[in-house]
């Protein structure tokens, strides 16, 4: 029991070093560079700290002999010690500066990326636009992107309201999204996996509920996913889902959300063409199940106060039908 009580906090501390979102669990090209820089700086500072502590302990323990040393030799020794310390400090700091300079130079965006994704950050969700030379091939999604492993993905960062920051610690460093300006970041996952990211610049009430997921997978699965995303929303057959679709179009849902292949073409809210295929809803707030979809539609303001989705008055049956329709949009 006692060991458990001690080890639990330790385990919690350690859990910060791994998992889906950690700069120390690096799986992207630039994240690996940054991790080596972090480790180099921390190790250097650790060595310096140990040396300083040893010198301090030594000077505290040293016995003072009664007679004062003669002034001249004392002065000389102090001069040597102080100038040595100053020189070492300058040397270490310039070493760290040079290491930092050369590491961050490697973070420059790739010149010839394999693909481009445009990100528009909004309060409080991420809009992703997969761009393609052929406009018919480009598509929108929200809060979740898939990328092929080993490919350089250029991410064009824009914001439509306030300053946000795009940060997927396991894959790359932070980059701000600034209204009226475009920043660029390159993502390159070296290993398949699910990597969590989040907004890293305080952007308002729900800043902490503005997460995104990057799913890195092999080329083949990525291509399958992308072609599935390009398709239009499924045409429902079950009566419950058909009713849900009719409600979606009749109520104000369609004024803000797009479902390709239907008359819903609003652009204020996330594209819902394939919402059923995403892992989470509301920017990582809830796991994507039919129940949580219903909970969200029933009362978005209590779940994520301040967000831009109003409560839609729905009866219990209508709520069930709409959430069934959402769930069916795989």
């Amino acid at each position: 029991m006692k060991t458990a009580a001690i080890s639990l906090p330790l385990l919690l501390l350690l859990s910060g070093c791994g998992g889906v979102q950690s700069a120390l669990d690096a799986h992207g090209q630039t994240a690996i560079l940054l991790k080596s820089l972090i480790i180099f700086v921390v190790a250097t500072c650790f060595v310096v700290w140990i040396i300083v502590m040893l010198v301090l302990i030594w000077s505290l323990m040293r016995r003072r002999d009664g007679q004062a040393a003669d002034d001249r030799s004392l002065h000389r020794r102090i001069t040597i010690a102080v100038s040595g310390a100053v020189a070492a400090t300058a040397l270490i700091i310039s070493g760290l500066t040079i290491a930092s300079f050369y590491t961050t130079r490697g973070l420059d965006p790739a010149r010839d990326p394999d693909m481009t994704i445009r990100v528009r950050a909004q309060q409080w969700w991420w809009q992703f636009i997969y761009e393609d030379a052929d406009p018919a091939q480009s598509f929108h999604t929200a809060n979740e992107i898939h990328i092929p492993v080993g490919k350089a993905v250029r991410v064009r960062l824009e914001s439509s309201d306030v300053i946000h920051s795009f940060w997927v610690p396991s894959l790359a460093g932070k980059q701000d999204l600034i209204p009226g300006r475009e920043n660029v970041l390159t993502l390159r996952a070296e290993r398949p996996g699910v990597y969590r990211g989040q907004c890293a610049e305080f952007c308002g009430l729900q800043h902490s509920h503005m997460a995104l997921f990057v799913i890195a997978e092999d080329e083949e699965s990525y291509r399958q996913w992308a072609s599935a995303q390009r398709k239009e929303g499924l045409q429902p057959r079950e009566p419950e889902i058909v009713a849900g679709k009719a409600l979606f179009m009749a109520r104000q849902c369609a004024a803000c959300h797009t479902i390709r292949g239907t008359e819903a073409s609003g652009t204020t809210g996330p594209d819902l063409t394939h919402i059923g295929s995403r892992h989470t809803i509301a920017a990582g707030l809830l796991e994507n199940t039919r129940g949580s979809l219903a909970a969200w539609i029933a009362d978005p303001q209590t779940l994520k106060p301040g967000n831009n989705m109003p409560i839609v008055p729905l009866s219990a049956d209508e709520l069930r039908q709409i959430s069934a329709y959402m769930d069916s949009l795989k």
Binding site: R251, Q252, P310, I311, V312, P313
Partner: peptide, 8 residues
């Protein structure tokens, strides 16, 4: 009536 709740 059908688009907003009464408190809205």
């Amino acid at each position: 009536r059908h688009k907003m709740t009464i408190d809205e």
